[in-house]
Design a protein around this nucleic acid. Structure first.
Lengths: 237, 237
DNA sequence: ATAATAGTGTCTTTCAGACATTATCTA
DNA sequence: TAGATAATGTCTGAAAGACACTATTAT
C-alpha cells in the first residue's frame, strides 16, 4: 500500500480520540485591579459554573490553534487581543466528565476599555477580579489553569513589559508600574522600574501628558517589538 | 435534562475531533555533541522519514499527557528520563495529511550511557547530532519542533542548570560547562559559570575525582531540587 | 620540567535597590 | 503656598565578565 492508498482509506473516526478544546485566560487591568474574563456555562457539563472562555476546535473555520483561541476571544470581547501566547496544555482522563480530554490553554491580555461595551452586551461574560477567583466554584480544572497563568504572568512582569498589553495604547509609566505591582503583589522601586525601560528604549514618548492630581505624567506607547524584549536581570520578588 | 442524563447520552465520537498525539524531543550529550533521539517511521503517513518519538494517547493506559510521553519514551529508551517538561502544542489543519491534528510536545533530557544499550536494541531509534538535523528530511513539522525545543533549551542553559540532566548522575563542572556551551553555541566564562553554581549550592561534592589528562576534576551530583532553580540574572548570549 | 586540565583571585562592569531630592501640576 | 504625584540624582550592593594566576595530575 502506498501513502495515497493509505490516506484515502484512513478514517480518523475509527479511533478513540480525546476531546480537544482551547481555553484562554484573558487578563486586564481595571480600577487598580487585575481581572480575568469568565463565562457562565449555559450547557452541560458543569452548567451554571463560571469557566474560561474557549471551546472546541472547528475543523472548518480554524487553520491553527491560534485561530481557534482568537475566534473564541473575539466572540466574547468583540476584538482580537494584542497579546495572545500559548500557556500550557492540560490533559487527562478525569478532568472532564465526558471523557479523556485535552485543553490547549492561552494567556491573553487586553485593555479593559476597548472591549468594555462588547462584554456588557454578552450576557454570560464578566470580568472577575483575580483576587476573588478563589471564592467562586469554577468549572473543570479552570481555577488551576488561572493560577498557572498568573504564575507565568508574575514571571513575565519580572523580566519583561508584557503586562503593558493590559493597558490602552497610551499609558503612563506609573500606571504600567502599578500593573506590574498588582500582578506580582509587591511594590517595586520606581527608579529601577523606569531605568531599565528607558535604557532598553522599550517605550516611545507620545509627547502628550496626562494630568489628574499632581504633576502630569508622560504618555508612552509601546514599540512594535517591545513585548518580546526580555531583560537579562529580573526584578526582585 | 440534568447532567447525569446529559452524560449518559453523550457520545464523543459524534463530533469531529482532531487527532491527538504526544511527541518528545529527547536530548542527550555524547561525544562532545548535543544529540536528539529520532525514530524511523515504519508506517504511513511519512513512512521512512525520521520523526520524533511519540504517538497517540491511550485512553486506557494513560491518565495524563505525562503518562503518554513517559510511556513512549520508555518504549524507546528503556528508562524514564529524569527531566521531562512540556514544550508547546502544535496544531493545525495541514500539519498531518490524515487531517486536523494536535501534538503536545515535550522536551526531555537523559544521560546517554543509561539508555545506550536499549536504543541499540531498538532497530528504528537513533541518536542524531543536533547539528545534522537540518540535513535530514524529517516527518511532519518535526524539524520546526526540534528547533523550538532547542531555542527553549538555550534559554534554560542561560538561567538554570537543567542541562545537567543530559549527563550521568556524577559529572564534573567542566563537563557541565561544556554541555551548556554546546547548547548555546558559544564559550562561557569558567569563573562566572562556577561561581553562580557554588553560590546557589546547586551541586553536591561526591568526594570523588575524575582524572583523564591534567588535574583531576571534582565529581558532583545534582541536589534534588536544583533543576528547578533559576538564577536571577542570565549569562550573556 | 612540561603539557594539560582544574580551579582561584581579583579587578572591572553592569544594573538593580534604596531613598533623598527636585519638578510640575491643582486648589 | 501646600499637597500631590512625576521624575531624577546618586550611593550602595550583588553578581557577571575578563583574564591572570595557582594547583594537581601524567609523562
Amino acid at each position: 500500500m502506498n501513502e495515497q492508498e493509505f490516506l484515502s482509506s484512513y478514517d480518523k473516526r475509527a479511533f478513540d480520540a480525546p476531546l480537544v478544546t482551547v481555553d484562554a485566560v484573558l487578563f486586564t487591568y481595571h480600577e487598580g485591579q487585575l481581572k480575568v474574563l469568565l463565562v457562565k456555562r449555559s450547557a452541560h457539563p458543569e452548567m451554571g459554573k463560571w469557566a474560561l472562555p474557549g471551546g472546541f476546535v472547528s475543523e472548518t473555520e480554524d487553520r491553527s490553534l491560534e485561530d481557534t483561541v482568537v475566534r473564541k476571544l473575539r466572540e466574547k470581547t468583540g476584538v482580537i487581543p494584542p497579546y495572545v501566547e500559548q500557556l500550557y496544555t492540560f490533559g487527562g482522563r478525569d478532568r472532564d466528565k465526558r471523557g479523556w480530554s485535552v485543553t490547549v490553554c492561552y494567556t491573553a491580555l487586553i485593555a479593559h476599555q476597548v472591549c468594555e461595551s462588547h462584554i456588557e452586551s454578552v450576557a454570560d461574560a464578566r470580568w472577575i477580579p483575580f483576587d476573588r477567583v478563589g471564592k467562586l466554584e469554577l468549572a473543570f480544572d479552570h481555577e488551576e489553569i488561572i493560577r498557572f497563568a498568573h504564575e507565568r504572568l508574575v514571571q513575565k512582569a519580572l523580566y519583561s513589559i508584557v503586562p503593558a498589553y493590559a493597558l490602552p495604547e497610551k499609558f503612563t509609566l506609573p500606571e504600567l508600574q502599578h500593573v506590574h505591582e498588582v500582578i506580582i503583589g509587591k511594590p517595586l522601586q520606581k527608579k529601577s522600574f523606569r531605568r531599565r525601560i528607558e535604557q532598553a528604549e522599550l517605550l516611545v514618548d507620545t509627547g502628550e501628558k496626562r494630568s489628574e492630581t499632581g504633576r502630569p505624567a508622560t504618555l508612552y506607547r509601546m514599540r512594535d517589538d517591545s513585548g518580546s524584549h526580555t531583560f537579562v536581570r529580573n526584578l526582585e520578588l
